[in-house]
Design a protein around this nucleic acid. Structure first.
Lengths: 252, 252
DNA sequence: CGTGTTCTTGATGCCTTTCAAAAAGGGTGG
DNA sequence: CCACCCTTTTTGAAAGGCATCAAGAACACG
């Protein structure tokens, strides 16, 4: 947490030269689409780690594209139990569900300091009318997110603690890879163990012990918020159990 | 399983007089929308209980509206473990994710004998171009389904076996209610205990014991595939812990 | 260098799984 | 209508994975 409750800083939209869109993770866009997107986008904000991007129950959530940093979607119960639904990496859409359903059924929190592109919700309908290609891509990204959540539900419902941690690490590794965030098999891994636990449906203590066990087993090393996969062979063997994420995707 | 591997029977589309659309669960539609939908719809099929509506990995899955009966989405692991992601009731869209992502990342199985309206996937794009209202409603239904899955993930990740069963029963009850499927606090409940277990991320044995415990506690009775909520007060107290499903929704 | 947060580790208990097998239903053919 | 077979539901017993409780160590920050 920062002392400043809401740290926001507005920057200029500049979609035409968007460096993120160039990553191999994303489809190329037509000039018309880029022009529409640039017009659609009204702001570019920084949000500090730990701040809420969308809070549960929010009725006027905007639509965002995560431009830099990590975030996560979550649900909380009134007694405080929390489930992290999925993690969001650069290029991911934030708040589509909240925008369409009119009231957010979940929260979204910045996991690291974050930059987001802001698209006002009232212009979403415009996109459906004037730029169906973009509307289609929004729906596509919504389906992809659902699939990520499906995958997590499979993990939490069927896999052991060890399997859950391994599959989460590997799937995040792969996602980071498509964004050129991996160097020498290592990448920034900003999750606290409490957040890991909340994502995996495990207690903090047991998460810690299992995490340590996997490190001792030589699957990965972790230090300074950076995770390195140490055993490609082992990793591949484990990873064979999970589906690979879709290759290329649209970006707003 | 039936002896006949695929039991299908084609009937005429007749969207204008669609009896399902009249249910209070659904938004009214404009004449233009209904006309488009009627044109969009190319078939009306019956599928027998236990048959797959979409199989995992399918590349040419169509889009469906579940017209009658129950179904469920699921994922399987190669070693056979299965997670049911969410249940589908009449009016729910089937195969949006599979259509958009081009290859189905999950399966959909008919839980009871089922009737579906068939919308060919190649015409989905037409809808985005020619009938943005319909496209918007598809996206809306996709988001709603994601929310259902989110809710299940919360359950499986955070709730005890007892809580999971109670919340599933109550949420299905409520969904059935909006479709006028509830009479005198009772409704058809076609899940086997194995399916319950797969949806809840529990073993069959423990599901059975917990299920029996809740019956003995007087929450509900069950017989002949019909479930009756017996203790409104208790039910409400438990149900307060869960969010209510959205009130009114679109239908294709 | 003190203080609050995050990470570790040990010990205990129980919720849930696994193993095994009997009981209850459902459907089919004689 | 009953015998027979297969699926689903129940029950009992034992083992184990994960949660909970407690507290010390390692970090991060002002």
């Amino acid at each position: 947490m920062l002392s400043n409750p809401v740290t926001r800083q507005s920057l200029h939209p500049w979609c035409h030269a968007c460096p993120l869109r160039r990553k191999r993770a994303f489809h190329p866009k037509t000039d018309a689409e880029i022009a529409f997107t640039a017009e659609f986008k009204t702001d570019h904000r920084r949000i500090a780690a730990g701040q809420e991007i969308i809070y549960p129950g929010q009725a006027d959530a905007e639509l965002f594209t995560l431009f830099a940093g990590w975030a996560f979607r979550y649900k909380v119960m009134q007694d405080g139990r929390r489930q992290i639904l999925n993690f969001l990496l650069p290029g991911d859409l934030i708040g589509l569900q909240a925008s369409l359903l009119a009231v957010a059924q979940h929260g979204v929190e910045a996991l690291t300091d974050v930059e987001v592109c802001v698209f006002p919700r009232r212009k979403i309908w415009d996109a459906f009318v004037r730029m169906p290609q973009l509307a289609y891509e929004m729906a596509w990204l919504g389906s992809r997110e659902e699939n990520l959540t499906d995958e997590n539900l499979l993990s939490v419902g069927q896999r052991s603690a060890t399997e859950r941690i391994a599959s989460l690490v590997i799937s995040l590794y792969r996602r980071a890879e498509t964004l050129d965030l991996v160097t020498d098999r290592s990448f920034d891994f900003p999750l606290s163990q409490q957040q890991l636990a909340d994502a995996l449906g495990l207690s903090l203590v047991h998460t810690n012990k299992t995490w340590a066990k996997l490190r001792r087993a030589g699957l990965f090393t972790f230090g300074n918020g950076r995770l390195t996969l140490e055993n490609p062979r082992l990793t591949e063997r484990i990873a064979a159990y999970f589906e690979r994420d879709l290759v290329e995707r649209p970006i707003l």
